[in-house]
Design a protein around this nucleic acid. Structure first.
Lengths: 201, 201
DNA sequence: GTCTATATTGAGATAGAC
DNA sequence: GTCTATCTCAATATAGAC
């Protein structure tokens, strides 16, 4: 019982910094730039030493996704139980950093089975949460669930966030500011309609 | 005037096959798998020989995107002038192959400036076309352009396509079949409303 | 004009030193 | 338990043969 007594602080701190660095690289240079050398250099380590903390690069990617998805699940749960669920959800779905990283993970998972499996688990859990909440609250928003079923609403929220952030971060001139502003107004209007009918709460 | 008289067929045919192979690899193994070796092997060439046809890998990526985007612009123009523009547009936006490739280009452009510039040009041209048409036809669909401006409608079409195809190709269990079916019904309903009011044509 | 032999760099990973 | 010296392989690219 004395082996794991040693202070883990140093190692855990290093792991955290490695994950931070990897995330930064992935965000600004793409997932293909997340290499042993690149990440190690940014944290002041050597490339082989990085393999001490993460045996394979796959392990590193999965660890990155795990840490991110924990936060996402937490924040999505909080958003969905907040007084204005759609508003909070949209803020999350259109968050530039989170969404840009999501696009990278999406592409990286295409040729990394371990990552794809992990992505599947997260996607399923998050979508489940969203649809459970939508089942209950869509009627309160005066939305006909036959015309706009939860699955469609959820996919639209995510997809619109993806499209906007993709254009924004790449700097494409596609009137994304107008689209973002219009969506924001739309969400506010819908929330107001519900608040008026079902009280603030 | 006799230099370019030689038959280009052989070379052009090879270039075409190289682009086909590269596209196939990008689709199934991700953009990072598009390497000289991989592509060359699939076409029965050697890696260095591939550099005879495309000096740099950047050149190859840009050529791939150019060829694809020509088709996209053509098909989108045809869709937007068809009798049921929204329907035709949605068929394009939710096409699995085209959209999956688009996601890869999106991620690849993140760290390839030449590719990013080309992506920007295409995105801008396509969005411009879409918004010009929407300006005219949204009223015919009985859609309030103040609540759903062209920029928002266009981004939503693209985004929903992205989200659906991403889940479909990765095999995520996120009720994407329901979402796709609901969107298809919705588009049909909207088209019918317009046809009834403005005649078939 | 078309293709091959070869250079150079950097990737992921391991055996073994401290 | 932590880190370093080193291996292998694959990537892009070029010089130069045919």
């Amino acid at each position: 019982m004395t082996q794991p007594r040693r202070r883990r602080a140093a190692t855990e701190e290093k792991v955290r910094r490695v994950l931070d660095a990897a995330e930064e690289i992935m965000l600004h240079e793409g997932y293909a730039a997340v290499t042993s050398r690149n990440v190690a250099e940014r944290v002041g380590l050597t490339a082989p030493l990085l393999h001490y903390y993460f045996s394979t690069i796959d392990d590193l990617f999965v660890a990155m996704l795990r840490r991110r998805s924990e936060r996402i699940v937490e924040r999505m749960a909080a958003a969905l139980t907040s007084p204005r669920p759609l508003r909070a959800w949209w803020d999350l779905a259109s968050d530039p950093r989170g969404t840009a990283l999501f696009i990278e993970f999406l592409a990286a998972a295409n040729h990394r089975p371990a990552l794809r499996a992990e992505m599947g688990r997260v996607a399923r859990e998050v979508r489940r949460m969203q649809m459970d909440v939508l089942d209950k609250i869509l009627p309160e928003y005066d939305v006909d669930p036959d015309e706009f079923p939860p699955a469609l609403v959820a996919a639209t929220m995510q997809g619109l966030g993806l499209a906007l952030v993709a254009d924004e971060t790449a700097g494409h001139e596609t009137a994304h500011e107008q689209a973002r502003a219009a969506m924001s107004r739309l969400v506010d209007r819908i929330e107001q309609r519900r608040t008026r009918q079902h009280g603030a709460g």
